[in-house]
Design a protein around this nucleic acid. Sequence first.
DNA 1: ATAATTGCAAACACTTTGCACCTGT
DNA 2: ACAGGTGCAAAGTGTTTGCAATTAT
Lengths: 143, 143
Amino acid sequence: MTMKPKYKTKQREVILSYIKQTSGKHITAGDVCDYFKEQGTPIGQATVYRQLESLVDEGIVNKYNIDANSPACFEYVADGEHDSDGICFHAKCEECGKLIHLHCEEILKIRDHLSEDHGFVLDPKRTVFYGLCEECGKEERSR
Amino acid sequence: MTMKPKYKTKQREVILSYIKQTSGKHITAGDVCDYFKEQGTPIGQATVYRQLESLVDEGIVNKYNIDANSPACFEYVADGEHDSDGICFHAKCEECGKLIHLHCEEILKIRDHLSEDHGFVLDPKRTVFYGLCEECGKEERSR
DNA sequence: ATAATTGCAAACACTTTGCACCTGT
DNA sequence: ACAGGTGCAAAGTGTTTGCAATTAT
């Protein structure tokens, strides 16, 4: 993984540029296709999937599988977070969809535990903690 | 959720019984279909999906969406664990696809941390740790 | 020149649905 | 009797793939 693309194509450029524009939001492969179709410069869906895949491999974009049967979400990795050795984890609220960035130390302990006791090398780029955020958790409890 | 089924059918009985037998393992809807086909008592896949769905609604079975593009996994909720908030976490190897069950205590700490320090209520059913398993991690390093 | 990328359409895998028939109550 | 369940086949989704044409180096 993390292999560089060989050629710099028009499609790659505009897809990356679009995904940068939408920083902070989650977009799906379909969103990308739709966007370029609307722009009058459609890109084949196979290309979109392939480019997104390689952007993920390169660590430029994160991919989240929210759940089976809903399309995968992609999100630009904020500048500065690249290659940061996985200091940033993400937690996503299942209720409101909010994405929380976890930069804290504690989280790293789980990584060490998995590594030491289970021999499992955790990949923070791909791992998302799902659950309920503070607000939504409160609502849930008050019901 | 947690609505009771109306009728007690043959299919429901045997599906539940099979899923109890496989406690501790993850099985897919396809596994269930295959099993009964091999037994010479096939059950329509629509029925399997529908019954699994209601077992999940009833809290008798847990469903895990490991990732898009691989089938959903089902697992019998061990007696006594019902409603117990789920003690089992999962780690999936990005390389070989192996799924590891994490039943250990340590993992629960992350849950407490997220809850106490971030107000985030982690959902173990939905959360999957991605990374490299022991074997694949070794291979990676030896390259 | 030649290796990679594109894009179409077809293939795929998993899951859901429509509907006529069967079963449990 | 009749609500509910079954099972087939068909439709739906999201994603991947084969391959000939195109493009970047």
